[in-house]
């Protein structure tokens, strides 16, 4: 079933927090609603669940890949020409260290940038229920749900004292 979104705007933080309480009481779950703000509030300000992130996996995986590739490049070339020079071992760490460090860095950087693009869920083509008042300073509570439940969501949002009309949007 197609989903719709509704948005209530609030001037006060407590009203937005009340709206989340009302939504939970009305049977909506975390993930059905989101807080929209123009400022990064501390996590949990509105009683919402702290967002989980897997941000550190990207650079770590990237660094591991980069390190492995660098190790293969250096060790591979050295083993391909196994000549002992100056009494040094064929696989000499000092000769490999710079490339392995840079390989790890580049892998981490490339994966971080890919992670930024992938995890941001951007670009978002359809904005859904949104208001320009959010970047002005209002706090938005948006609910994304089946069309049949939008009335329940609107009632819950209105009960907390919205600042203006409820805004509806497509997802």
């Amino acid at each position: 079933m197609a989903k719709r979104s509704v948005l209530g705007l609030y001037s006060e933080e407590d009203s937005a927090a009340d709206a989340l309480d009302n939504l939970r009481e009305a049977g909506f779950e975390e993930g059905d609603y989101e807080i929209l703000t123009g400022v990064p509030y501390p996590e949990g300000t509105f009683g919402e669940a702290e967002p989980e992130h897997k941000l550190y996996r990207w650079p770590l995986i990237g660094a591991a890949c980069g390190f492995t590739i660098a190790l293969l490049i250096t060790a591979g070339t050295e083993l391909a020409y196994p000549l002992i020079t100056g009494g040094k071992p064929i696989l000499s760490i000092p000769a490999m260290a710079i490339i392995m460090y840079e390989g790890s860095m580049l892998g981490a950087i490339i994966f971080t940038i890919i992670g930024i693009i992938f995890e941001s869920r951007l670009p978002r083509i359809f904005m859904g229920a949104y208001s320009e008042k959010i970047t002005e300073g209002h706090i938005g509570v948006t609910v994304t749900t089946e069309e049949t439940r939008t009335d329940i969501a609107e009632t819950a949002l209105n009960k907390a004292g919205t600042d203006g009309e409820i805004i509806r949007g497509w997802e």
Partner: peptide
């Protein structure tokens, strides 16, 4: 802006990403 809306998840994501990218 690529459709930035300012959800808690987006702010959280942006905060941590800036830290990681800054350190790199």
């Amino acid at each position: 802006a690529l459709g930035w809306r300012g959800t808690s998840a987006q702010w959280n994501w942006q905060h941590h990403r800036m830290g990681v990218v800054g350190a790199f």
